[in-house]
């Protein structure tokens, strides 16, 4: 039953992403064309509240439900991997209008064709694993 909470959290996330239309290709196009505040509002609100929540967790050294300290592992330093990798992802995001979460939400919503995006995204990750050591990080 411990696993049920993750499924439930995922269900809520799926509903929220659909109800705010963040899974829509149209909304992502609107965002990249700077023609609406909608997506910036969603991400902005999440980040502002997230910053406050994480700051409070750190300040009061809060522990998780199992009693372990909450630690957020910092990302390793670097520029190339984040800038290049981020740019490659951005190209795919604007083309398909879906980031990894919304891909799966779309599938559940009934867009079977999103399955193609999912299969090839898995393949893309495999490809990265193969050539990883030859890339600048």
């Amino acid at each position: 039953m411990k696993s049920l909470r993750f499924i439930l959290a995922g269900i809520i996330f799926g509903i929220v992403m659909t109800k705010s239309e963040a899974i829509s290709w149209y909304r992502i196009q609107e965002m990249f064309r700077f023609q609406s505040f909608h997506m910036y509002g969603i991400i902005g609100t999440a980040v502002v509240l997230g910053v406050i929540a994480v700051a409070l967790i750190k300040k009061y050294r809060l522990r998780d439900f199992q009693g372990n300290p909450i630690v957020i592992a910092p990302k390793e330093k670097g520029i190339a991997r984040y800038l290049i990798g981020g740019t490659i992802f951005g190209l795919g995001w604007a083309l398909t209008g879906a980031c990894p979460g919304p891909m799966f939400v779309n599938l559940g919503y009934g867009f079977i064709s999103m399955g193609i995006v999912i299969i090839f995204a898995t393949l893309g990750t495999y490809l990265y694993g193969v050539v990883k050591d030859k890339l600048p990080h």
Binding site: G86, T87, L95, L123, T125
Partner: peptide
């Protein structure tokens, strides 16, 4: 698009 997303992320 999927390839770009999987590789890039």
């Amino acid at each position: 698009g999927g390839l770009l997303i999987g590789f890039g992320t």
